[in-house]
């Protein structure tokens, strides 16, 4: 088994005031694995990912306590940009793409590392993975379908050569076919790039096929964790999260 790539210790996140959105969460993601975070609306899943990936100084959110270690270095409270440059990349839940920019511009806006040739090669590789991109290059990203927007968001993050990709609610608002498309893509990213994944998901059925480990959040704290099969098979998860679907 590989060593831990991301290690989160008693992380606490708050948006000002006395209340906390994430309350002392411990979480470990090992190199190459897919880790799933489950939880109801408002359980603190998005805040957990934002706390790991960093808040911009213009945002009210802050990491109030705890420690985030990524690839052996303490990265607690770094800016989102610093995180991204270290290879800790988040595909956020709400706005994943720049709606007023074209698809091409969305890709060009990503500051890539390496020489010109290497950058060119990476862009070609990524666009080859997402066939729709070539057809829609000059279309404003705001006019893409929900699934395409999700995929473009993932494509943009891949250009940053992530070691750990965090995807927040990839399936939210997507049709079943689009959900399948997105998860197929995530699967192939893991397979061909060896990227480690930390996925927040409410659509448990879609996510369980690719997950190795799982955490369940309730009101900002981890209430259950372990191998994905055990966690998803547990009574608690079956009742609360799968009950409606099965």
């Amino acid at each position: 088994m590989n060593g831990p790539l991301l290690e989160v210790r008693s992380l606490t996140v708050s948006y000002g005031g006395d209340s906390v959105a994430v309350d002392g969460v411990d979480l470990v993601v090992r190199e190459g694995e897919v880790c799933l975070v489950l939880g109801a609306n408002g359980a603190g899943k998005t805040s957990l990912l934002r706390g790991i990936g960093g808040f911009a100084s213009s945002e009210p959110g802050r990491v109030r306590g705890g420690r985030v270690t990524f690839a052996g270095a303490d990265v607690t409270g770094l800016s989102p940009r610093a995180m991204a440059r270290r290879g800790l990349v988040l595909v956020p839940e709400e706005a994943k793409v720049f709606a007023s920019l074209t698809v091409d511009e969305n890709l060009r806006a990503v500051p890539m590392s390496g020489g010109r040739a290497a950058r060119r090669a990476l862009v070609d590789e990524v666009t080859a993975m997402f066939p729709f991109i070539a057809e829609r290059l000059s279309l404003p990203a705001g006019q893409l379908s929900g699934g395409e927007r999700q995929l473009l968001g993932i494509a943009r993050s891949l250009l940053l050569k992530p070691r750990l990709l965090m995807v927040d609610e990839a399936s939210l608002g997507l049709s079943p076919i689009a959900v399948e498309m997105v998860f197929d893509m995530l699967r192939s990213v893991v397979a061909s790039w060896g990227t480690t994944l930390l996925v927040v998901e409410q659509n448990v059925r879609a996510a369980q096929s690719i997950s190795d480990n799982a955490y369940v959040l309730e009101t900002g704290s981890v209430v259950l964790s372990g191998p994905a099969g055990d966690v998803l098979g547990s009574e608690r998860v079956r009742q609360t999260y799968l009950g409606l679907e099965m």
């Binding site: 911009a56 940009r81 988040l90 956020p92 720049f98 920019l101 806006a109 993050s157």
Partner: peptide
């Protein structure tokens, strides 16, 4: 220009820009 495109990106969504590695 790439810089110009990044400026437009940051204007639309500074947080997403920072998450995408742009020096806002």
């Amino acid at each position: 220009s790439t810089v110009g495109i990044r400026m437009r990106a940051a204007a639309e969504n500074p947080v997403l820009s920072a998450q995408g590695g742009i020096a806002v």
